[in-house]
Amino acid sequence: MPGEYVVASVFYFEADGMTDKFVQSVAGMGAKNNTTKTIRGSGKNGKILRQNLPGQAEFNNVTVTVTYNGEEDLHKWYLACSQDGKARQWNENRKNFSVVGYSQDKSTEIIRYDFKGCFPESYTGPEFDITKNDPATEKIEVSIESYEIKAKKKDVK
């Protein structure tokens, strides 16, 4: 029997040098194995030989939405990697980041996604709209080089 279910709203995001963010959402975590779909040829009596093989793995971009509070670290990270008119230093500014899901008591780590070698592909600043009551947010879409999932197993009695 599995352990406690993870509630989608009990999580934390942290990146190298960026902590204590109030994160609204983290979306897009996943991977895909791009398969080759090849017809090898036609044989006796017109029989076609098909063979699908695993191709290159591809990691989804992850989009992190945080409540905007005037800090500039997400935007500065994007600029360090992508600013026009200056030498782009995306490789030197790669960061590792983690998304952690907690138990319902908010004290026990249940699952951890550790993302490696990441850099921002896009940044979206706050949207100001007089008709909305929601907090202003900023988003950063991050390219992922690799990741690991570390599930914490609870003792079941």
Rank of each mutant, 00 (worst) to 15 (best):
T38L: 12
E92M: 13
Q89L: 15
F13L: 01
T35M: 13
R50Y: 14
Y5T: 08
V26C: 10
E72W: 03
K153D: 07
I144F: 07
G43T: 11
D155S: 10
M1Q: 04
V156Y: 13
K76M: 03
F115A: 05
E14W: 02
K21M: 11
A136L: 09
T19Y: 03
P2F: 11
K150N: 13
Y113W: 15
G41P: 09
S98F: 03
G85K: 05
A31V: 01
S146F: 06
A8V: 08
K44A: 12
T38M: 11
A27W: 00
I111G: 01
T108H: 15
N52A: 07
A151K: 14
C118Q: 08
E141F: 00
M18D: 05
E4P: 07
G43Q: 12
Q56E: 14
H75N: 04
Y5D: 09
D134S: 11
E145S: 10
T35E: 12
G41H: 07
D20H: 10
V100I: 15
T63R: 15
F22L: 12
S143Q: 07
R50Q: 08
D16W: 05
P54E: 08
G30N: 01
I130G: 04
N34E: 15
F11P: 08
F128T: 08
Q104E: 12
G3S: 09
D105I: 07
I111T: 10
G30V: 01
G46F: 11
G117I: 10
T63Q: 14
D134I: 03
I149H: 02
S42C: 07
T108R: 15
D84M: 07
N33A: 09
K95Q: 05
C81S: 06
Y113G: 09
F128G: 03
V23S: 06
S25H: 04
E127Y: 02
I110V: 14
Q56V: 14
P54I: 06
S107C: 11
N61E: 14
D129A: 10
R50I: 06
K37N: 14
Q51G: 04
D114V: 13
D114T: 15
G117L: 15
Q83D: 07
V6S: 10
D155E: 09
K150M: 11
K154F: 06
E14S: 14
N61A: 14
D73W: 02
K44W: 03
D105Q: 12
I140P: 08
K139F: 02
Y123A: 06
D114F: 07
N33Y: 01
